[in-house]
Design a protein around this nucleic acid. Sequence first.
DNA 1: GAGATGACTTAGAAGACTCCAT
DNA 2: ATGGAGTCTTCTAAGTCATCTC
Length: 773
Amino acid sequence: MAVAKVRPRKQSSEKKATTKRTRKQSSSSSNNNDDDDEPLNKKLKSNGKNSTNKNDEVKDEDIPLGQLEKTKSKTKVISPKEEDIENDNELTLSQIKSNIDKSIQIEKVSNSSDNKSLTENEEDSSEYKWWEEDLDDGTEKWQTLEHNGVLFPPAYESLPDLVRLIYDNKPVKLPAQAEEVAGFFGAMINTDHAMNPVFQANFFKDFLAVLKEAGGVLEPKNLKITKFDKCNFQPIFDYYEQKKEEKRQLSRTEKKALKEEKELLEESYKFCYLNGRKEQVGNFRVEPPSLFRGRGKHPKTGSLKRRVYPEDIILNLGKNATVPNPPAGHQWGEIRHDNTVQWLAMWKENIFNSFKYVRFAANSSLKGISDYKKFEKARELKNHIEKIRQDYREKLHSKVTFERQIAVATYLIDVFALRAGGEKGEDEADTVGCCSLRYEHITLTPPNNVTFDFLGKDSIRFYQEVVVDKQVFKSLKLFKKAPKKSGDQLFDRLDPSILNKHLQNYMPGLTAKVFRTYNASKTMQDQLDGMEIKLEQPVQEKILLYNAANREVAILCNHQRSVGKNHETSVQKATDKIEQIIWQKIRFKRALLQLNPKLKKTEGKMFEDIEDLTKEKELEIIKRVTERDLEKFKRKFLNDNEKRKEKNEELLPESQLEEWLDKVNKQKDLYIEELENDGKLSDEFMEKVSKEDKLRDKIHKFEQRIINANLQLKDKEDNSQVSLGTSKINYIDPRLSVVFCKRYNVPIEKVFTKTLRDKFKWAIEGVDDNWRF
DNA sequence: GAGATGACTTAGAAGACTCCAT
DNA sequence: ATGGAGTCTTCTAAGTCATCTC
């Protein structure tokens, strides 16, 4: 996985940006000279009054749900089975309202197939630009909140009678509840999870419990299931695979119809009204029951995650909001009116007894405001980082172990972007962060080399060989001194809350995670600053540079992704393809010379690469190209005939295939003849390309293609293990990307997907060209 | 002050969709 | 038109951290 890298970060580069400030810092960033005139900057008033009343005047579209006039009509949406806890098919007023919204939206979308995103944008943001308002810092998150509750997963559908679990070579009929759990496992027997013994054991334990609850096996009557190894899930697996295949085989229109049906069902849950404004809900779907897929060596992986019922759910609504109807025959667990929190609904899951929340979408004002505050806090750290670093360098010499641990921990968090590292329970995967690092996680090699090797969040390996400050090295040695041994805490005097308390002495609100945001965005800014980007460069090249900067940040934060199974093949393919284009280019250059031999003298430079391919290489390419074409025609022959068969048409004769293959082979012979004649092209070929201009044009195009393909290949290889998305979404101040795009005339769509453009609308619309992190 | 609880952000995997070569 | 690779979105696990409780 991770590759050993020595990557000591330069501390000195900070200096320029963090000249010491003497003024008192009362509000977040207004003391930064470089952004005094920046519109976003007037926010975060500490005691400001709520600004929400400005929307008293609501547009028609924005009438709060509860205030809609009653209408008698009931609309059928879908027909869930009676006993389902699917959502009521009797629509509430608000649902009706939402459906109206929906139909408007559908109309809009269908009217403008060529400019879909624009329409959606208009629809989504009933245009509350919070970033143009003064923000208030109080604990109240909202005044009114209305929504339609949550969407439940469909009820379990029993397997057909013939599809059964096989136990001890006998088909077994299970009660529906147990069958469902067996189905969870059966559907995934081809995954890595299902091969993990811990997963299997946890699944099987919970399966047996459910089976017992449900009264045991139905048929054969006295059969007792006791051994996992005697279970054969293949028929269940095959059944679900077949279902998937059937779905895949649906026609375009059928798929579309299904999708529309699904959307209609979801429509009323997608939006809510916050202070009377329409906002998107994020995860309005209740998590379906399943087997828990823990990451890494999770002791509970495979455990049954039980179905959530309306009775389990707490809805959070405004006091005057209409309570959405629970599914027929059910009640909500609780209705709460807590306006100090951002969640719309929550429930307790059964594996850890922790809460799951339904929240606003990333493009909502509340999330946007939090995001904005996060980055402003990170920027505020600019004003303190100098002092913090100075302090921890001093304290590295402290005689007091506690102080020394604080200093080293802060150093590691600052320089290597470690997470805080809270304590973890027995029933969780063994992963660590800074404060929870143990003896065995670092190896010290004099004079001052440190190897980190531990599993971090999500059990992602953190492996780095680095050079550290001499005093840090000494301190770490001290923290590892006997009687400490493997398994012992390195920072035995620390935990995140102690560390954070210490950090807050420097800056209110400063915690360990702020360093990650700060250093990530700072790195991005420095990277972009350090690049030589020219306005007239092709956009694609500029994007590549942007991605290179993004990649540095991702590496800093250790954001990884698993290398795809066919990564290697795909790299090989790309390499082969580039070779083929080079070969073509050379052939065309030869043709050009053949047409006009004088060019060798007048434009010698152009023909320098004409000998780049050895004969052996060329032969290899010819073979490959031939092979590829032969395959292609064979496939075409099969495909064509299959289609003809379906349509009851006459099949293509074998001779047709032979004719095609013959053509390919003849072409191959021509290539080889060329090769044997030292690259002299056939008369036939020369006739086709008789014009010098056209040849030059072709050659130019080949060259462009080679450049592009090489760039792409490089990007692909560099990115194969690094995940750029996480840092772009969470760590890099979006204003950096916006300013980059503006300055270098790159369309914002090239760096932010639609979702990100929505999420970062505040940055896209609210930043001026000279903004700096 | 330690531990539990609750609420929020951050994370990679998986699934859905798109686009390009054929 | 098709199908596969690559991109984007969704899902939900796994962190952080503030606050509450004793």
